[in-house]
Simulated assay, not measured.
Amino acid sequence: MAQDFLPGMESSAISVLKRAVELDQSSRLQESLVCYQEGIQLLLDVLKAVKDESKKVHYREKIKGYMDRAEQIKDHMNKLKEEGKYHEQVKIADNSTGFSYESLFKPYIRDGLTEVWVEDPYVRHVHQLYNFLRFCEMVLKGPCKVKTIHLLTSKDEERSSQQVSALAEIRQSLQSENVCLDIQFSSTIHDREIRFNNGWIIKIGRGLDYFKKPKGRFSIGYCDYDLRECHETTVDIFHTKHTKTT
Score class of each variant (00 low, 15 high):
Lys91Pro: 02
Val116Phe: 09
Gly98Arg: 00
Leu129His: 12
Tyr130Asp: 07
Val118Cys: 00
Ile109Pro: 05
Gln128Cys: 11
Gly84Cys: 08
Lys81Gly: 09
Lys91Ala: 04
Arg124Asp: 12
Lys79Gln: 11
Leu113Val: 12
Thr114Asn: 13
His125Met: 14
Gln89Ser: 14
Glu82Ile: 06
Glu115Trp: 10
Val90Gly: 05
Asn78Arg: 09
His87Leu: 15
Ser96Gly: 05
Val118Ser: 02
Phe99Ile: 06
Val116His: 09
Lys91Gly: 02
Ile92Trp: 00
Glu119Tyr: 00
Leu113Thr: 08
Val118Gln: 01
Arg134Cys: 08
Lys85Thr: 10
Asp120Ala: 01
Tyr86Ile: 04
Glu82Ala: 14
His127Glu: 13
Val90Asn: 07
Val90Tyr: 04
Tyr130Lys: 15
Lys106Leu: 04
Tyr101Phe: 14
Tyr86Trp: 00
Lys81Trp: 08
Thr97Lys: 01
Asp94Ile: 02
Leu80Ile: 04
Tyr101Lys: 03
Glu83Asp: 14
Glu119Arg: 09
Phe99Met: 08
Tyr86Val: 07
Tyr108Thr: 04
Val126Asn: 13
Lys85Gly: 08
Ile92Thr: 02
Tyr101Gly: 03
Gly98Lys: 02
Glu102Asp: 12
His125Gly: 10
Gln89Val: 11
Glu102Val: 11
Lys106Ser: 11
His127Ala: 14
Tyr122Gln: 05
Tyr122Ala: 00
Gly112Gln: 15
Phe105Gln: 05
Ser100Met: 03
Glu102Cys: 02
Phe105Asp: 01
Glu102Asn: 08
Ser100Asn: 04
His87Gly: 08
Leu129Thr: 10
Phe105His: 03
Gly98Phe: 01
Ser96Thr: 00
Tyr108Asp: 01
Gly98Gln: 03
Asn78Ala: 10
Asp111Leu: 07
Phe99Ala: 04
Phe105Trp: 12
His125Pro: 05
Leu129Tyr: 08
Asp120Lys: 03
Tyr86Pro: 03
Asn131Ala: 11
Ile92Arg: 00
Leu129Phe: 14
Asn78Gly: 04
Lys79Cys: 03
Tyr130Asn: 14
Lys91Arg: 12
Phe132Pro: 11
Thr114Ser: 15
Tyr122Thr: 07
Thr114His: 14
Asn95Tyr: 02
Lys91Val: 02
Leu113Ser: 10
Val90Ser: 10
Leu80Trp: 07
Glu102Met: 10
Lys79Val: 01
Tyr101Pro: 07
